[in-house]
Design a protein around this nucleic acid. Sequence first.
DNA 1: CGAGCTTGTTAGCTAAGCTAAGGATCGTGA
DNA 2: TCACGATCCTTAGCTTAGCTAACAAGCTCG
Lengths: 144, 144
Amino acid sequence: MMTERTTADTLAKTLRDAIIRFSRRARQARPVGDLTFSQLSALTSLQLAGTLTPRELADVERVQPPTMTKIVGKLEERGLVARRRHPTDGRQVILEATDEGRAVYALHERARNEWLAGALDRLTPEEQETLATAAEILHRIARG
Amino acid sequence: MMTERTTADTLAKTLRDAIIRFSRRARQARPVGDLTFSQLSALTSLQLAGTLTPRELADVERVQPPTMTKIVGKLEERGLVARRRHPTDGRQVILEATDEGRAVYALHERARNEWLAGALDRLTPEEQETLATAAEILHRIARG
DNA sequence: CGAGCTTGTTAGCTAAGCTAAGGATCGTGA
DNA sequence: TCACGATCCTTAGCTTAGCTAACAAGCTCG
């Protein structure tokens, strides 16, 4: 229906606007160290999954394979991620976070979350609930 | 309290995760033409405000002034934004969207919103309401 | 075995973002 | 008045993120 479509359009605009600004604000909250947003995100996905191939990680992160090659390269340089050969398929590579990767991740994650968690702490429980639900919805949309 | 802080931490992580993926997904939905995410965002802010100085626009967009110089430069090259001299302060510059800027913006905005509005259309009214509220909260957090 | 697909990487590009530094202009206080 | 500090914008130079195109290696299946 006309009105509903208009509602969706308006919401789409509002939402995109809010998210791009939020995103940039979050990006500004740099951790003490040197892990970037994308690197941290990749490391997180890798840790949650245990092991992944580069392609799988690229899919999860919604990025093209060459982009993931670069990100993984940076993480590997710092000894946070290790490459292993696939036992049966010579084309594939298996990625895994190292112990140091896990430790460094936890540290940076905490620093990175600081301002956001602080801001969330100042919200009402209802607002927190709203954001939690919204996060689930956004995740679903991004996946679709 | 301990538990609340933990809740905020968890929510922070979930939210960041959802947003970064959503963001990348949105970025993939390229319009027909050539305006990028950041350019479109700047053009939007400028149009909504009417006129802004580069610094004001940088603040709104949560970006450093040199970054905004580049973005505005791209927009100006394409004749979408015009620079004017400030009537009394010789240091400042006044930015404004041109007619063509407004037209191109509307076009690209529509294309860009397509997948998102489509996805939003498939949500229940309650979910849409949740996202609308969440957008407001996120905007407030980003501003703080 | 050979053709074709899949995986990962390399090469090369653009855009986005930052800091540092500089030039022009404004405002103010001696 | 005028010199000095502050403000605004831009330039220069860098890193990261992201893309496509192309390619080498390996798998698969007729």
